[in-house]
Amino acid sequence: MTGVWALLGALAVAGAIGVLLKVREGRISSRETSADLPAPVRDLLAPGVTLVQLSTTFCAPCRHAKVILSDLASRTDGLTHAELDVTNLPDVAASLGVMRTPTTLALTADGVEVLRVGGVPKRDTLLAALQPHLP
């Protein structure tokens, strides 16, 4: 009988996690911080706004994020996309407060983070949020 409850509990937890992650997927959190960026991230900064996408080797959705972001960057003036594989750079991810991949940071040329996106970004909402920061 306990097994039945364990099964129902597992189904409920899976449902809750599924809903939570779907809701949070691609959510944008705005910020205006200029903390010291780790060197591997600073090296990627380009003029305008750079979308630094943090990925790992084991991250399947990172590929989808990459396709969306590189396409968006190629069509938008002043926007650059760069991917950083943090599989072997856990300290870099930790210092940025990033716990899941893909996470994308939008950074200005002088290293100010204007927003970040958890999960696979939604193209139109992201572009709208970036608009005020683009030249």
Binding site: I17, R100, T101
Partner: peptide, 13 residues
């Protein structure tokens, strides 16, 4: 059901 790989997304954690 969702094609979601928890372990992969939480790799850093």
């Amino acid at each position: 059901a969702l094609g979601l790989c928890l372990g992969c997304e939480m790799y850093l954690l």
